[in-house]
Nucleic acid binder design. Structure first.
Lengths: 336, 336
DNA sequence: CGTTTCCATGGAATCGTTTCCAAGGCGACC
DNA sequence: GGTCGCCTTGGAAACGATTCCATGGAAACG
C-alpha cells in the first residue's frame, strides 16, 4: 500500500505541480518557502519514499556501488567489506555486496549483474588471472582493486605491503635463530600469492637462511590446504623449525596439522601467519601475525572508488603491515 | 561507452521494432525464429546489457531482495548470508547485503534504503525490540525473519530449535557430573537471547541441577562481554564447574578469560558453545558445541521469502540442533 | 510609469524498458 | 472463394522520477 505513493500523489496533496515537488525534494533553491512547507507536510502525511530506480534512470546516477569479494566467510574479507560499506554509507552510497565464493564463474555472474543494475562503480578482489570479462569491465565502469590486483590493468588499487610484511616475519624468525623456515603460500594465479612468495624467497636469501626449495609449498588460501602443506613440510627428511603461512585460514589448517603431530607450537615449532584475525589472540597459544588493517583497506578502496566516480584519478595505496609477536613464536625455543 | 547501448540500438541493428526486440529478449513466445536470430546477433555484436532499473520500473519486479544481518563479521551470520545469497542466485535474484552492525539506527538506515531501491522482499535478523519502522515495513513489503524474531509479528521465520540445543548441552554436562553450570547468555532484547535463557532455566531444573541465579549472566553476543561474564562467574564464592555460552564470540571471550586464570579447559572447567564455527575444532582444546546449520538457515530463509513474494504463505521453519562433543568437555574431569 | 530582470512555477520531454492494442498476413476451414 | 482466427509485428502508452523551457508576476531600475 505504502509503496504505491508517487511524487504525483505528493504534488496533488500539496497543491503544486510535480516539477515543483521534485525541486523541493532535491533541494533546488528555486522554491518558495510556502511550497517547501506544503510539500514536506504532504511527504510526511503520505509516507512518501522516492523511487530510486526512476530517479537514477533519469539522472544517470544510481548512488550504488558494487563490492565483489572472494569469500564472505573469510574473516579478512568480512572486515574489508565492513570497512567499505561503512565508508559508502557516510557518502550516502548503497553497497551491493557479492560473494564470488573463490569461483571465477560466480565472479562473472555477479559482475554481469552489477552492470545490469547500473552501479556507479565496482570494487573487486579479483579471482584468478586476467579475464576478457574484466578487461571490458575496466573500460565500462569505474573500477578499483582491493587486496589483489591483476597485471596489466591501469586501475587504482589498495593493497598491503606484502614485501614488508613477509620480511618482518622472516626477520623475526631469523632473530629467534631459525635457519630453515617452511613457507605455506597461496596460488600463483592470485597477485597476493605471487607477491608474498617472491618476497619470501628474497627475504630468506637476504637473511642468509636456508634457501632449500623444498621449504616452499603452496595451497589455495583455504584452511584444508594449509593442513596438507604443513604435513608435507614436516614429513621431509630435514623438517623446518618454523612455519610461515600466507593467510589466516591456511595458518589455522597448519595449526591443526601441527597439533595432530603432537608438536608444541612456540617451542617445538614456531608458527607465524599473514593476516590478523580477532580470535587469533585467543588461540592456545596465541598466534604471532603480520597484521594489516582490513577495515582500513575496505574504506580506503571505497574512497578511491568515489574519487574515480567523481572524475579524479587517485593514486593507488599500499598499506603498511605490522608484526605482532605472540606466544606461537615468543616462548623459549626447545633445541633439537 | 559500452553501457550506453540501449534496446533501441539493438532494434535498429536487427531491423525490427523495439517491441519485438523486447519480446525476443524476455522469451515471449510470440516471435518468429528469424526475428530471434537477428536480435540475438545484434545483442552479441553490440554487447547489449539490459538496464535493470528501467526494466523493473515498468514491470514492477526488481528481481532484487534485501538481506539485513546483524554483523557480517560474526562468522555465523557470514554463513547465513552465504546460504541466502547462493539460494537467491539459483532463482536469479540479486541480493543486497546490508550490515546493521548491531546498531538499530543503521538497521533503519538500510531498511529505508531497501525500500527506496524497491526490493521485492527483505530478510532480516532484527535488532532490538519492535520498532514502529519495522511495523510499517511488514505491511509494505514481503518480509522474513532469520535467526531472530520479534514478538507480535505475523512474519514467517527460520530459527534454530533453541530449546533443544540448550537442553542437549545441559544434558551432556549433567551426564558428565556437573551440577553447577554457569550460563553466559545474550541480551533479553533479542529473541534468541530470551529463548536460550528460558530454555537454560527450564533444562537445569528438569535435570535437577543447581538453580542458583548467581550462575546466570549475560553479555551482548560479542567477544568482550563473554570474557567479562566468565570472569564474574568464576570469581564467585562457589564457582561453576562448567560454562555454557549462548553464542560463539562470547565463547571465545570466555575461553580467553579461563586461560588467563590458568584453568585447564576440559579438565578444570568444561566449556560448551552455542553455534559451531569452522575453526572451533582447531582450537586447543577443540570446543564442544551445539551445532546448527547456518548456511541452511540462510537458504531456507530465502526460499520462504521467494514463496511470500510469489503470493504463497509458507510456514515458519525451526531447524534442529546437534551436539558435537569435543575435548573442551570430553576428557577426564579433574575432581576438586 | 514603463521596461527590464529575476524568481517561482507548471507543463512537457526524457531516461530505457515492458506491455497493450491494433493491424497485417497467411493458412485453414467451410 | 470468402471469412475466421492465429501468429507476428510495429507503434504508443506507461512506469516514476528529473530537468528543460516558457510564462506569469513581482521587484527594481531608469
Amino acid at each position: 500500500m505504502d509503496s504505491t505513493v508517487t511524487i504525483k500523489d505528493v504534488a496533488a496533496l500539496a497543491g503544486v505541480s510535480v516539477g515543483t515537488t521534485s525541486r523541493v525534494l532535491s533541494g533546488n533553491p528555486s522554491t518558495s518557502p510556502a511550497a517547501r512547507e506544503r510539500v514536506h507536510a504532504a511527504v510526511a502525511e503520505l509516507g512518501y519514499r522516492p523511487d530510486a530506480r526512476a530517479r537514477s534512470l533519469r539522472s544517470a546516477r544510481s548512488q550504488t556501488v558494487g563490492l565483489l569479494i572472494s569469500d564472505v566467510r573469510n574473516p579478512f574479507f568480512a572486515d574489508v567489506a565492513h570497512g567499505a560499506e561503512q565508508a559508502a554509507l557516510r557518502s550516502s552510497y548503497v553497497t551491493l555486496l557479492a560473494n564470488a565464493n573463490e569461483d571465477p564463474k560466480q565472479q562473472d555472474t555477479y559482475l554481469e549483474s552489477f552492470l545490469t543494475q547500473r552501479v556507479d562503480g565496482i570494487i573487486i578482489a579479483p579471482q584468478g588471472e586476467e579475464s576478457a570479462h574484466l578487461r571490458t569491465l575496466a573500460t565500462t565502469v569505474p573500477l578499483v582493486f582491493v587486496d589483489r590486483t591483476v597485471d596489466g590493468f591501469e586501475v587504482p588499487s589498495v593493497t598491503s605491503d606484502n614485501a614488508l610484511g613477509i620480511d618482518q616475519a622472516v626477520a623475526h624468525l631469523a632473530d629467534r635463530g631459525h635457519t630453515r623456515i617452511g613457507y605455506i603460500g597461496g596460488p600463483r594465479s592470485i597477485s597476493t600469492g605471487r607477491a608474498r612468495h617472491d618476497a619470501f624467497v628474497r627475504s630468506v636469501a637476504r637473511h642468509g637462511l636456508d634457501t632449500d626449495p623444498g621449504l616452499i609449498t603452496s595451497g589455495d588460501f583455504r584452511s584444508a590446504s594449509g593442513a596438507v602443506a604443513a604435513e608435507r613440510l614436516l614429513s621431509g627428511g630435514q623438517p623446518p623449525t618454523a612455519l610461515l603461512a600466507a593467510d589466516s585460514p591456511m595458518a589455522v589448517g597448519a595449526l591443526g596439522a601441527l597439533r595432530r603431530r603432537g608438536l608444541r607450537i612456540g617451542s617445538d615449532v614456531d608458527l607465524v601467519a599473514f593476516d590478523d584475525i580477532e580470535w587469533f589472540s585467543e588461540l592456545d597459544p596465541p598466534l604471532t601475525v603480520v597484521s594489516h588493517d582490513a577495515q582500513a583497506m575496505g574504506s580506503t578502496a571505497m574512497r578511491l572508488l568515489l574519487d574515480v566516480i567523481e572524475g579524479r584519478t587517485p593514486e593507488s595505496v599500499v598499506l603498511p603491515t605490522r608484526l605482532v609477536v605472540r606466544e606461537s613464536s615468543g616462548g623459549a625455543r626447545r633445541q633439537a
